[in-house]
Write a protein that binds this DNA or RNA. Structure first.
Lengths: 125, 125
DNA sequence: ACATTATTGCGAATAAGTTGCAATAATACA
DNA sequence: TGTATTATTGCAACTTATTCGCAATAATGT
C-alpha cells in the first residue's frame, strides 16, 4: 500500500496547507483550480487522515471538515486534541489553540475527541 | 403553535426518559413497540429540542443522537455543556457529568458546544 | 521499456434527515 | 356534547453527504 505522488494529492494538500481553516469536500472542490472528482477528493482526504497528515472534524451540521493544524509548531501539539470553532456567520471551522481537557469515569478508554464550539467568530461580530 | 399530547409524543418521551443513553432516530424506531414513521420521529425530536426537553448531540459518525440528561439534578446542569461519550463497542452515547471548559479568543461568541469523546466504555472493556 | 498496483473518474448506491401534502386527531370553545 | 381550528401524522419524494464497484489511467520499481 505504498503512496504515490499525484497532481490531485498535491493540489488538495497545498490547499489545506494554505488554508487557515478546516475545509469540507465541497469547499475543497470549489477552491481547486483543477477539476477533481468528488469521490476522489474524499479518498485523498481519507488517506491523509490515515497517514496522520490531516485530522477530521465532524461539525454539528453532520459534515466532515479536514484540517492541517499549521499553527501547532510541533508534532505532539498536532496530535493533541484541541477545540474547534465553527462560525455560523462565515461558515468556517478553525482550530483553536485550546486543548481539550476532561476526565472520564473509571474503566473508560478514550481514543478520540471531537469538540466543536459554535457561534460567531471575531471577524464576523 | 401550542403543543398537543399524542401517543407518539408520549412514547418517544418515555423511551428517552427510561433510556440512560442518547438515542438516534433509528434506535428509537427499533425500540418502540408501536410503529411510528421515520419523519414523525424526527419531527417529534426536533420539537423536543426546540422546547429544551431534549438536547441533540452530533457524533463522529455524523448522526444525531437525542438525550434527556436525567442524571443532572437541576435545570442549570441540564443546560450546561457537558462531555458525551460514544462507545464504539456497544454503539451508544451517554452524557458524562463532566462539564466542558474552554476559553476562546477575544471577540468570539460561543452559542453551543458539541463535545464527544470516543472509545470504549466500562461495560465493554 | 515493462510489469505491478495505487489512483482516478464515473455512475450508482447508501444513509441521514427534511419537506410537501393530504388525512387525522387533539384541543378550545360555543 | 358538537364543531371549528390547527397541530400532528404518514407517505412518498427529495436533498445532501459519503461510499463503493469497476474499468481505465498512471506512478513507481526493476
Amino acid at each position: 500500500m505504498n503512496r504515490r505522488n499525484t497532481p490531485t494529492k498535491e493540489a488538495v494538500l497545498n490547499l489545506l496547507l494554505n488554508s487557515k481553516k478546516a475545509l469540507s469536500q465541497d469547499a475543497i472542490e470549489n477552491q481547486l483550480d483543477i477539476k477533481i472528482n468528488r469521490a476522489t477528493i474524499y479518498r485523498v482526504l481519507n488517506r491523509f487522515c490515515k497517514d496522520d497528515l490531516v485530522h477530521r472534524i465532524v461539525a454539528e451540521d453532520g459534515k466532515q471538515y479536514f484540517a492541517i493544524c499549521k499553527k501547532c509548531e510541533n508534532q505532539a501539539a498536532v496530535l493533541q486534541h484541541h477545540f474547534h470553532f465553527r462560525c455560523l456567520s462565515c461558515d468556517t471551522i478553525e482550530c483553536l489553540q485550546v486543548p481539550v481537557t476532561y476526565s472520564v469515569p473509571n474503566g473508560y478508554r478514550v481514543q478520540n475527541a471531537n469538540c466543536v464550539l459554535t457561534g460567531v467568530c471575531n471577524d464576523c461580530s
